[in-house]
Amino acid sequence: MSAHKTLKLIGFVSIAISLSFGALFASAQEKFGFGKPAHPDEIARYNSDIHTDGSGLPDGSGDVALGAEIYEYQCALCHGEELEGVPEMGANSLHEGRRDIKKLPYASSLFDFIRRAMPLTDPGTLSNDETYGLVAFLLNETGVIKDDNLTLDAKSLAAIKMPNRQNFIIDPASRFTAEDLQ
């Protein structure tokens, strides 16, 4: 059988399969019925992500001093005392290049990532206060917000306008529109 015929046959079989599903269910409302309903409490246990408008940010607050303390014993080993990065530990500078904190479009991305994935060997162990404190420390340290007394919570973090925000664009070669991104 030629490759062309094989492909034609595959095409025919996939049409046949989709038709058979049409016949499987009497109406569009009918379902396979697999899976269990997710209880709101269960969703809440996993739903940790944060949107750019700050929705999803948890209660709590933290300041630069708390962040500096946490940074010293949880982060500096890999990210360096001055945020310069320790390549032997696998961490690049947070002052320049792709990990440059100043260049992030939203502070929410930073909070979300630290809470989600850091510290590398023990992620998910930082409290909300500690995470807010770390974001405050990092923004102060990188000069985004020069304020040694900066304290962040859900409201103040959501209000931060990162200086590089306007330099982020969507890929003109892709099919996205500005409306997709809002």
Partner: peptide, 20 residues
């Protein structure tokens, strides 16, 4: 979501300084 992966790692600087 503009996750860290999306904005810090998997985005592309353009010659004009913009980041895609």
């Amino acid at each position: 979501w503009w996750t860290h992966q999306e904005v810090a790692r998997y985005s592309d600087p353009r010659p004009n300084g913009k980041k895609v």
